[in-house]
Each structure stands twice: as structure tokens, then as C-alpha cells.
Amino acid sequence: MKFSNGVKDGLPIGLGYFAVSFSFGIAGSKLLSWPLVTLISMTNLTSAGQFAGLQIMADAAGTFIEMAIASFFINLRYSLMAISLSQKVAPSFGVGKRLLLATGITDEIYALAMSQNGPVTARYFVGLMVLPYIGWSSGTLCGAICGEILPSIVTNALGVALYGMFVAIVVPQMKAHLPTLVAVLIAIACSLAFKYVPALSGVTVGFAIIICALVASFIGAALFPVKDESDNVDQTKGEA
């Protein structure tokens, strides 16, 4: 598998990432200057994790421990993908290359790499991740600069774009897989409680997200365990 095949396969992912990270850039521009927002995207390549991170940074009470725990649980699924990808790559895909290219393990890149016939070479994997990486970084750059220039009525409107995309990821899965609907509703109920129940309002934003997601996923897994790999919750349409 050649580098050029990877680039070709990565193009649609890169375009999609540009749109998502453009809205991340808009959201980030409310808190940070454009180079700092862009640096987050260049070093993380994960939408849900970055967005939670941004919310923790924006919270005056946010702590580094909270950031570490939130990043850990929100991105834990990448470990799962990394494990299964490690069995799919060619023997020549050595330790050094793995350390260098591990950042490329995102929902979409992982899904595409796994769908290939035969072992995945490092060359193909680099090709696959190059356009998504560029799309993700440049999208944030453009979004953050637009966020600084455009009037607030426009950036407010653009600010909900990211939430719109989150909805577009979650709703189709809720429609297709009833247990996901249940888990998502539990997460939302829990999240509303942290916002509006006075006794819980002292909990910081990051920990609230962590607790909601853990409780809802735990209940989901206990009540409705997914059957096997093929019957797994579909992650191919997920975010970065």
C-alpha cells in the first residue's frame, strides 16, 4: 500500500475535519488568541477531548487534575483502537514509527485503516493521516481568526456549529441503536442536574462531564452490553 493511496483515502476525512475544527476555532477564539487555539488542535487531534479541555480552561475553577482525568476518559477509546490497530499493521511498522504516528489514531482514520485488505504499512498510514491533520489544524486556524474578526452576532451563530455537529454524530446513532438513546438521555439528565440542582452546582464543568459520561456509559454497558465487534456501536461516523 502506497503513500499516495493513503492520501487519496484521507481526503474526505480532511475536508470533514476542516469544517469541525473551524467551529472549534470559533469557540476557542472567545478564550484564547488564534495561535494558542491552533496549537491545541496541532497537538491533540481530538474534537471531544479538545472541546472539554477548552471548557475546563474557560472555567476559572478548572484544575490540571481535572484536565488530566477528563482527557483520560474522553480519549480512552483511542487506546481500544490502538490495540486493535496494532494487530492490523505490517511487521515493518516498528516501534519508532508507531511512536511517531500514534497521534493519527482518530475515529475516522482508524476506521479507514481497519477497512483495508491486508496489513497496513507505515507509508500508507502517513498518507492517510496527512490531509486530516492539515485539515484539522488549518480549520482551527481559520476559525480562530474569523472568530476574532467577525461581529459577535455572526460568531454567536457560528458558535453553535460545533454543537450542531455533536448532535449530528449522536442523533443517528440514537435512532439506529436504542441502548445508545437510553445512555445519551441518562447523560443529558445527569448534565442538567449538575447545572440546575443547587447542591451539585459546586462541581466544576470538567468533572461534571466526566461523571455524566461515566455514569451513563456504565449503565449502558451493564444493561445493554454490545454483542461483538460487528455489532459494536458504530464509530465510523464519529468525530476526530
Binding site: V170, V184, C190, L192, C212, A216, G220, V226
Partner: peptide, 18 residues
């Protein structure tokens, strides 16, 4: 495995609402 499959969706939901 089930737990990790649900995490992305519950995280996104909790971050979106409210």
C-alpha cells in the same frame, strides 16, 4: 468494550446539553 463504545456519545451529549 461496551463501556468504551458508549463513551463518545455520552460525552458529546453531556457537553452539548445544557
Amino acid at each position: 468494550r461496551s463501556f468504551l463504545a458508549y463513551v463518545p456519545y455520552t460525552v458529546l451529549a453531556a457537553m452539548t446539553v445544557p
